[in-house]
Simulated scan of single mutants.
Amino acid sequence: MFDHLLLLSPILLFLPLVITVPSPGGAPPTPCRRCCDDLELQKGPPAPQTGDQKSGLNQMPEVRTYINMTILKGDKGNRGDRGTPGKSGEEGATGSRGPMGPKGTKGQVGPPGDTCKTQEAAFSVGRRKSLHSVDYYQALVFDTEFVNLHGHFDMFKGKFNCYVPGIYFFNVNIHTWNFKETYLHIMRNDKEQAIVYAQPSERSIMQSQSLMLPLELNDEVWVRLYKRERENAVYSDDVDVYITFNGYLIKPTLE
């Protein structure tokens, strides 16, 4: 047996050399491949195995659900309620003071305050110009204001406006013109209340008249010079005050 193996050993050593030698003049021999090599090349290298796969455990394939949101989109909802406002920010720094604007025109005298709180009224005005009678009655207008509490006396019209009903005292002083008659009335609205009269004389004199009147709200008290049926006038010299008209509230009417 051993002798037979010794005889075969040289043959076995030369057998691979005979197989790999190419045949003369022919194509090079193709290497031997298995029938499943192509499939393994297409699949690529094997994925790394998890612990469960290594251990031989079977797993269920992962299922992912796809939802088409364009199909499930609903109608636009109503606008929600307004939220609570946030906290106020920090106050900024005070800006620089701007330039002073031009001086405005003087406004008109406003209406008096509540008569329940303003239980007082007084005025004293004067005139520095003489006045002669014309063909119509003239209101005596004054150009000098001594006292005009709360603006109740209208300097443009020469009339006192009653804003506080009650009992009032009034007084008028005039200077007559020599050789001319002096004829005036203290008026309440459109009715004569008292007369201021002086006959013509070669001397000019001071003449005065006083009275008390009950007044209602919005009553007017003023002095009227008679018209030219009587040639009359009051005198002044544009320097001294000869003509004055005064009035004040004695007692307000309590309602």
Results as ranks from 00 to 15, higher is better:
Met100Ile: 15
Met100Tyr: 13
Gly101His: 11
Pro102Asp: 11
Lys103Val: 15
Gly104Cys: 13
Thr105Pro: 08
Thr105His: 11
Gly107Ala: 12
Gln108His: 10
Gly110Arg: 12
Pro112His: 08
Gly113Arg: 08
Gly113Met: 12
Thr115Gly: 09
Cys116Ile: 12
Lys117Ser: 13
Thr118Ile: 14
Gln119His: 09
Ala121Asn: 02
Ala121Leu: 09
Ala121Trp: 01
Ser124Glu: 06
Ser124Cys: 13
Val125Trp: 02
Gly126Lys: 02
Arg128Lys: 15
Arg128Val: 14
Lys129Tyr: 12
Ser130Leu: 10
Ser130Asn: 05
Leu131Ser: 01
Ser133Asn: 08
Ser133Met: 04
Tyr136Pro: 00
Tyr136Val: 12
Gln138His: 06
Gln138Met: 13
Ala139Thr: 15
Leu140Gln: 01
Leu140Glu: 01
Val141Asp: 01
Val141Phe: 05
Val141His: 03
Val141Ala: 07
Val141Gln: 05
Val141Trp: 02
Val141Lys: 09
Phe142Thr: 03
Asp143His: 09
Asp143Gly: 12
Asp143Lys: 09
Glu145Phe: 11
Glu145Ala: 14
Phe146Ile: 14
Val147Tyr: 09
Asn148His: 08
Leu149Ile: 12
His150Trp: 10
Gly151Cys: 07
Phe153Leu: 07
Phe153His: 02
Asp154Ser: 09
Asp154Asn: 13
Lys157Ser: 11
Lys157Leu: 13
Lys157Glu: 10
Gly158Asp: 04
Gly158Val: 08
Gly158Gln: 03
Gly158Cys: 08
Lys159Trp: 05
Lys159Asp: 01
Lys159Cys: 06
Asn161Cys: 11
Cys162Gln: 01
Tyr163Arg: 06
Val164Ala: 06
Val164Tyr: 03
Pro165Asn: 05
Pro165Gly: 07
Ile167Tyr: 10
Ile167Gln: 09
Ile167Gly: 02
Tyr168Gln: 04
Phe169Lys: 05
Phe169Trp: 09
Asn171Asp: 07
Asn173Gly: 13
Asn173Ala: 14
Ile174Thr: 07
Ile174His: 03
Thr176Val: 05
Thr176Ile: 06
Thr176Phe: 01
Trp177Ser: 01
Asn178Gly: 06
Phe179Lys: 00
Phe179Thr: 00
Lys180Cys: 03
Lys180Val: 02
Thr182Leu: 03
Thr182Trp: 00
Leu184Ser: 00
Ile186Lys: 01
Ile186Val: 15
Met187Arg: 07
Met187Cys: 12
Arg188Asn: 07
Asn189Tyr: 13
Asn189Ile: 15
Lys191Ala: 13
Ala194Lys: 03
Ala194Arg: 02
Ile195Pro: 02
Ala198Lys: 01
Gln199Glu: 07
Gln199Cys: 05
Gln199Ala: 09
Gln199Asn: 07
Pro200Asp: 02
Ser201Asp: 09
Ser201Asn: 11
Ser201Lys: 05
Glu202Asn: 10
Glu202Gly: 10
Glu202Lys: 10
Arg203Asn: 11
Ser204Phe: 08
Ile205Asp: 01
Met206Cys: 11
Gln207Lys: 14
Gln209Lys: 09
Ser210Ile: 05
Met212Ala: 13
Met212Gly: 06
Met212Ile: 14
Met212Thr: 14
Leu213Gln: 04
Leu213Met: 13
Leu215Ile: 10
Leu215Phe: 06
Leu217Gly: 03
Asn218Ile: 07
Asp219Ala: 10
Glu220Thr: 15
Glu220Leu: 15
Val221Phe: 02
Val221Pro: 00
Trp222Ser: 03
Val223Ile: 15
